[in-house]
Computed example of a mutant assay.
Amino acid sequence: MHGLQGAKGSKGDPGPAGPSGEPGARGEKGEMGLAGLQGPKGEMGRKGDPGLHGPMGPQGQKGDPGQPGFKGITGQLGPMGVPGLDGRPGQKGEKGDPGPSGNPGNFNHFIRIAEGGRRGRVEIFYQGSWGTICDDGWGNQDGGVVCRMLGYSRVVSTFTARPGTGQIWLDDVNCSGNEYSIFDCPKPKWGVNNCSHNEDAGVECA
């Protein structure tokens, strides 16, 4: 027959440490955890310093020529220029052929009515050739001098005659009517004019 259990004794001192155990086998890889929430946007960084200039690139090839532009509008005719200075006197020309015979005592070897008779285009002989007179300012006082040069007594009318040819010798003739010859009347220099032959002066004498 067992006896009664005795009282529990006090705790004894710990024994010496046992030797280290061998490492256990590696456990299996755990499942991937859930993705974390997106963090707040960071502050903008400061602007960086400008970089150094790169080397100059090679020159490009010359392009093809462009197409010609449209022709511009013709400009307006400019004002008539100031007459130039008188040139040096030319050499004396050869003696001209004699003019047609006229009434005695007149100047018809220097002036004539081109159509013949009493009415027509006035032509004047200068520097070896016959030419015309522009009708700018042409009137009865000028025509009266011409008629007297041709041996007539008076002028009937002055007008713009049929166009002639050759040089326009005189323009803006301004006779007073008392001159002996049209050579004595005020006028620009010989050959100076702004006319065409559609403005050739005519006269009718009586």
Rank of each mutant, 00 (worst) to 15 (best):
V155C: 04
K41F: 14
K47L: 11
H197Y: 05
G78E: 06
S181M: 03
G102W: 02
P163D: 09
P68A: 11
I113K: 01
A7Y: 05
E94T: 12
G96N: 03
R112N: 03
G166R: 08
D64I: 15
G143V: 10
Y152V: 12
G166H: 09
D13N: 11
I111S: 01
L150R: 03
P40Y: 08
G27N: 00
G202E: 01
P58W: 09
S157F: 05
G117Y: 12
Q59I: 15
M44V: 13
L150D: 02
D184R: 10
K92R: 04
I111L: 08
K95T: 15
I113F: 05
N193A: 08
F110N: 10
D97W: 13
N140E: 07
Y126S: 07
G84T: 07
G90N: 03
D142G: 04
G105R: 07
A206K: 13
T160W: 04
G120Q: 06
I73V: 13
G131N: 01
K29F: 10
L4C: 09
E43C: 10
S196V: 15
N178M: 13
E94S: 09
P98E: 10
Q167L: 14
G21C: 02
D142A: 06
N108F: 08
E123H: 12
R121E: 01
G139W: 03
P68C: 10
N140W: 05
